[in-house]
Design a protein around this nucleic acid. Structure first.
Lengths: 330, 330
DNA sequence: CCTATGTTTGAATACGTATTCATAACAAAA
DNA sequence: TTTTGTTATGAATACGTATTCAAACATAGG
């Protein structure tokens, strides 16, 4: 590979001058500049970004630790994060959460030299948190957050849980089942908390068999749903903790011959784009449609990288109901 | 940041020994090894991957230049590529195609030091091709390919086009509209070619207003579809060049009060997971469900990186029909 | 005891760039 | 002419690691 030294020799100048042509062109005489520029072209020179990073002490790249893309919510955030980062001149190393073995993903992220880290995949008491802190580079959580204070942007999950539940209650549902994911993720615990609060305040009880915690895999959701359908006193409505789960449930229910919402009301959370599809018209709760948590988070992160201000960004955005066609009065 | 030199000083050894502890632990005496290991722990030492890359001349990272994730096909390939790469010890820099200005994306990719490049976003006569070649690192195309010989894996797009068309013809459709993307992408040109061939062989003509080329944006697809619906002799079936387009059309049609397949048959290509959803049951043509082009491509790419064999991988996989519920006899 | 062999270690160097500091060339001012 | 200042350039160095080469030392065989 041709280096700046090669270019220098070819152009009859010092490596320093070549470097200056790239970074401080006005410090070099016009004639020299042309000469060097031509040499670079002719030799097809490309600056070695690794060497640059070593001396500049920044890689212009960011690690994204995201939830899996089979949840369309993360499709939208990943797209925003990658595209906005590009705009600001950063590359994004993408990693996906791995339920079985997140530690190895963490190790990859910790080992890779990046200017900042943005992650949705963190548990409420995740030990990764202190490791991230020790890296001494900015990191930002979105969607989910950690117990300890740090940078995060999230939706008001409790409010989301309450609004979804209130909607179902207003439609006269009393027998409501919850299908969610692991409670050590604040999205799930928060939304469940809201569900509980609202039910309690309205004098409704939640029977234990109607609280279903899955690992969000399709197989596990199937298992849970088939249990629910087999209950003597089958629930009339399901509160799915995410639109992704809801859409999968929809698939399962239709496949088994049930009609939504006639046989079962269904509401999700996140208001992902797919929920608006007229084949679904999924009722859901989510943020203002203009806002994207990924986008908000990456913007803050890059600001932090470039300003190195150490004030925590902690933002919780309101949730609102999007009533569509998968919930109905009984 | 603490360096190997700091660790060396603290442990009372040379930097060489610290390096050996990391890379050739059996070359160093057990006692020394423990001493150094302890020092690394105590100082919270993390090897600088940038410095490593500089001397090793490999970054253990790969650039992915992907089509946009709002096409679920790329969700599936991106997931495979990222996860498989991790398994083989590589990070993935993700970039998304940008219809308006792909050159700047290309520049980003060319500037970033990676061990290999995997891309779906290439045009049939894309000038990026020769630039990629001049980088002298392996690159692999998937889904779409280039005019010149190189590494690629694809579905047999012509066969796909023929099979989808044949299916519609067998259902007695004669008035079939095509909605696709830019013809300088081999996915679209190949599928269209198959559409043409099959129509011709069966004595069917394609009227010009039924050939619709979009930029695959929602707005443009809307425009085209509304034109089609306004035709005097409205087509009875639509061949959407991708499932992604088909699913969007489905949304549009339902929203406008049409029923699929009663008012209009609809078939896509790609057989993405979402097409199987029982709210859609989209008829489509695609590869064997076990195969994933992204996965196949990344496997070849990493093999190439690690073996540096220079034989081209050129693979074209057969397409098959998946008949579901969006196509019906008339 | 001497030589041959193996083991463990460190000094020096390379990777490719950006930056600091010094110098040379030259013009302007005194 | 000397001084001062300005502009353009290059030599040397730093970034943090891996590797080469040589040296120090121990062990075994004769």
């Amino acid at each position: 590979m041709v280096s700046s030294k090669d270019v220098a020799r070819y152009a009859g100048v010092s490596q320093t001058t070549v470097s200056r042509v790239l970074n401080n062109p006005d410090m070099v005489e016009k004639k020299t500049l042309e000469k060097v520029t031509r040499a670079m072209k002719e030799m097809n020179y490309r600056p070695n970004s690794v060497a640059r990073s070593l001396v500049n002490r920044r890689t212009k790249s960011i690690a994204l630790l995201s939830g899996p893309l089979h949840n369309p919510f993360f499709v939208e955030t990943t797209t925003s994060i990658v595209n906005y980062s590009k705009q600001r001149g950063y590359n994004v190393n993408v990693h996906f959460e791995n339920f079985g073995d997140n530690m190895s993903v963490y190790q990859d992220v910790l080992a890779s030299k990046v200017d900042g880290i943005i992650l949705s995949s963190i548990l409420y008491e995740d030990p990764i948190f202190s490791e991230l802190q020790s890296l001494d580079i900015p990191f930002m959580m979105f969607n989910r957050k950690h117990k300890k204070p740090g940078n995060f942007v999230e939706m008001d999950n409790i409010e989301a849980g309450r609004k979804a539940t209130r909607h179902l209650l207003e439609l006269n549902h009393r027998h409501i089942a919850w299908i969610g994911g692991p409670m050590n993720m604040t999205t799930f615990s928060g939304r469940y908390e809201g569900f509980q609060q609202e039910m309690k305040e309205n004098g409704c009880t939640i029977s234990p068999q109607n609280v279903n915690i899955t690992d969000t895999s399709e197989a596990d959701i199937c298992r849970v749903m088939s249990d629910l359908l087999a209950e003597k006193e089958r629930p009339t409505a399901i509160f799915a903790a995410t639109d992704s789960i809801a859409i999968f449930l929809l698939d399962y229910l239709i496949q088994k011959g049930y009609q939504v919402p006639e046989d079962m009301s269904l509401i999700g959370v996140d208001n992902i784009a797919l929920s608006r599809h007229h084949s679904f018209r999924l009722s859901t709760v989510g943020m203002n449609e203009k806002e994207n948590l990924g986008r908000i988070a990456i913007e803050h992160l890059i600001d932090k990288i470039e300003s190195s201000d150490d004030q925590f960004v902690e933002k919780t955005y309101p949730a609102q109901l999007y009533q569509r066609s998968t919930t109905k009065n009984i």
